[in-house]
């Protein structure tokens, strides 16, 4: 098993940014460490601020951790539209199954 997988962030204009992600880190931490704009994560990953919202349409079924009730509640009031594929990226842990997964950044986090 490799220590690092590749995660892809898709910006609103369709541009894709490929970054190396450390397994065990969250998708949010991966974005922040790689300066991916549009993932604010004001609370640092406490599932408190809903500013690390991503859409996971391009992520295979069954590879994401389950959503907690609190994440579910926070997403209802995220700044950008909530869709069936919405998640908070601080609650998604990077593992080998996420290699080359694509996370779409919404138009707003505040």
């Amino acid at each position: 098993m490799s220590e690092s997988v590749t995660i892809i962030f898709e910006k609103r204009d369709g541009e894709r940014i490929e970054v190396a992600a450390r397994t065990g880190a969250s998708v949010m931490e991966t974005a922040v460490v790689n300066n991916v704009a549009g993932i604010e994560a004001e609370c640092g990953g406490s599932c408190i601020c809903a500013t690390c919202h991503v859409y996971c349409d391009h992520v295979a079924d069954g590879v994401l951790d389950e959503m907690s009730p609190i994440e579910d509640d926070m997403l209802d009031l995220a700044a950008a539209e909530r869709r069936p594929s919405s998640r908070l990226s601080c609650q998604i842990r990077v593992g080998p199954a996420l290699d080359r997964a694509v996370f779409v950044i919404p138009e707003a986090q505040f």
Binding site: A25, S26, E29, V32, V33, N34, N35, C43, G44, G45, S46
Partner: peptide, 25 residues
């Protein structure tokens, strides 16, 4: 980030690299 200093970092759930405000670069 300072909040994890009394929580996730202290509990060993996150290391210093995981609580950076931004990438050093």
């Amino acid at each position: 980030h300072r909040p994890p200093l009394s929580k996730a970092f202290l509990a060993g759930e996150k290391d210093a690299g995981q609580i950076l405000l931004r990438s050093p670069d």
